[in-house]
């Protein structure tokens, strides 16, 4: 039997406590008006913190091999690729009219 790390109930309980605090923080933050962009970034940041806690402790990634960590991160890494190039399009659309405007191919 390979030794597998046993995470203690106390750790789990601490994590749960932190998650509650973060949840309260994210609800609280939504009542402070920082401007929609900063509110969004703050909410995302708190959600990422919650996710990290769950992934690291509840999902034992902190105690896993490097390879498992890489596999766990791969999906998020690929999402960042997707997000970056996708938003490059949406944020640049208003920068100019399409070079094809007026052509038979539309614009």
């Amino acid at each position: 039997m390979s030794e597998h790390h046993i995470v203690m109930p106390k750790t789990y309980a601490t994590v749960l406590g932190c998650l509650f605090v973060l949840m309260a923080a994210t609800i609280g933050a939504s009542y402070i008006h920082l401007g929609s962009t900063y509110n969004l970034l703050l909410a995302l940041f708190i959600a990422l913190c919650k996710m990290s806690l769950i992934v690291m402790f509840f999902m034992h990634v902190k105690y896993s091999s490097k390879l498992t960590k890489v596999f766990a991160a791969s999906g998020f890494f690929w999402l960042i690729i997707f997000f970056t190039l996708l938003f490059a399009d949406y944020m640049a659309r208003h920068l100019s009219t399409s070079p094809f405007a007026g052509s038979p191919y539309g614009g």
């Binding site: 933050a29 009542y31 008006h33 929609s36 909410a43 959600a47 996710m51």
Partner: peptide, 12 residues
């Protein structure tokens, strides 16, 4: 759900 909650319920 941790992402869905702020994304839908907490838009400001």
């Amino acid at each position: 759900w941790v992402f869905i909650f702020p994304m839908f319920y907490l838009v400001t």
